[in-house]
Design a protein around this nucleic acid. Structure first.
Lengths: 198, 198
DNA sequence: TTGATTAGAATGAACGTTCGTTTTATAATT
DNA sequence: AATTATAAAACGAACGTTCATTCTAATCAA
């Protein structure tokens, strides 16, 4: 890697957790292939041998990281499913979750969005980039099945909203459009969302 | 790389062009870091020395590839600017260009979208993923400046449409949502676009 | 012949991984 | 309670491999 990446994980946690934390940070900051195992060693405050005691190989770290985030994400999605009875409420909750994540845990969000990309993780893990969106589609499909949502228009509208949320996240991360315009778009999408799901 | 990637560039072209062609294909197929220089040697039917005679290093190949695509893209955008006088027409043309590219030259499109990602190209080249979108914003800004477009609503709407186009491309590439739904979304966006830019 | 281009073997640095050892934690025995 | 025994975990130097790059010889074009 290029320059010093000072963020060193505190030593209260165990090796597994420290490596996962460090990897999430390094992989999202520099990418998988730009992050060497020695980099992870330094950032996690663990030794090489210790890491290879807990993980099969470098790819194993990435997989464990993915599992960890998927697990967390599934837990949150499960809560949403429990807490909200209707499909509309659930969809809204997922969108709000995504909005919230972009602000509170950008690393996680970037991982969710980009993890599928060929050079972010070795191998193909199509699911990992789209878990919340998969769930979203489930909600929509169920809602249509039990008559909560109208078959065509609502589906398109909801999918449109969900697409909008994704777009917002992608663009915000990429810095393609500036923040003031982004805020206006936020309003547009929220307004559209309200009209569909209110 | 892992398996044989049979696509070999024809020998009618020169070294520079063959390497660029092969790199575009390999980088978009496998990614920059998964593509070794020997891979490029095989795919381009050039020798190692020949490649290093024409390019400074591997990163130089990626940069030249980027320059090449940027050049082509600027040419097309220039034509659009010449051909269409109004901002609305120009914006529409850019979107149509993007739609068209996803079908005729998926490699180029994938490059435009993903080139900025940390692991696709070394270094940061913020411009390269967003050239058409930059131009789009120019058109919008100009349109507002000379009164062609209404300051607030049209800007948001147009940006929304352009975001939609981007979203379509991203999602189609990722296969996140299936094609039938995608077609419906296409209709939604085209309809929205018509109402704004007609 | 001379300079530019091509060729591919040689090189050295960097990487992921392994391995023998040491340390720490837990259990068993006296 | 003190000592020994056993296992798990941590360590980091060393290894083999791969990669980008260089180098020297061969080839082509003028």
């Amino acid at each position: 890697m290029t320059k010093a990446n000072k963020k060193v994980i505190q030593s209260g946690k165990g090796v597994h957790e420290r490596v996962i934390d460090a990897s999430l940070h390094l992989f999202t900051q520099q990418g998988y292939f730009n992050t060497s195992v020695p980099d992870i060693v330094k950032a996690s405050n663990c030794s090489t041998g210790s890491i290879y005691h807990h993980f099969k190989d470098k790819e194993g770290i990435a997989n464990a990281l993915y599992e960890s985030l998927l697990h967390r994400m599934n837990a949150v999605l499960g809560e949403i499913e429990q807490q909200f009875p209707t499909s509309k409420q659930r969809c809204r909750a997922v969108i709000e979750l995504l909005f919230q994540l972009t602000e509170t845990e950008p690393d996680v969000m970037e991982f969710i969005i980009y993890a599928k990309h060929k050079e972010f993780l070795p191998g193909n893990n199509p699911i990992c980039s789209s878990r919340p969106f998969q769930k979203m589609r489930e909600f929509i499909t169920e809602g249509i099945a039990n008559g909560e949502l109208e078959p065509i228009d609502d589906m398109v509208a909801a999918a449109s909203i969900y697409g909008g949320a994704l777009r917002l996240i992608v663009l915000r991360l990429d810095g393609v459009i500036e923040h003031s315009l982004m805020d206006k778009l936020d309003d547009v999408w929220k307004c559209a969302w309200r009209s569909v799901a209110a």
